[in-house]
Amino acid sequence: MTVRLSVPQSAKRGDVIEIKTLISHQMESGFRRDAFGEVIPRDILKEFRCVYDGQTVFRAELFPAISANPFITFHTVATVSGELEFVWTDQNGVVTRETASIEVT
């Protein structure tokens, strides 16, 4: 799984920062059929969350209507220097994690 994160390297305490995430995943909807007419089984990421400063600051439940290679932009308040953790969980509970650090002054 390839992940791309856009997190500011630094911010002032209290600033609202924009975070962008992109992950490679086909998000197979379960509504498509193959060349033989067989339904292609659903295979999607079900959940995304961002944990920062000990709290889940943003969480998303994803459905088959999320495009392949999910792109999500959200915001959070810069509170402390440290790591933001990004966690994607697929329908079988398989987890992809990535972190980014931020310096808050």
Binding site: F58, A60, F63, I66, S67, F71, T73, F74, H75, V77
Partner: peptide, 18 residues
């Protein structure tokens, strides 16, 4: 399509996706 959960730690209630 999607459910987004946020709170005061978000600072801004704005989300974008495809």
């Amino acid at each position: 399509i999607a459910k987004f959960y946020l709170g005061p730690r978000a600072g801004r209630a704005r989300v974008a996706t495809r």
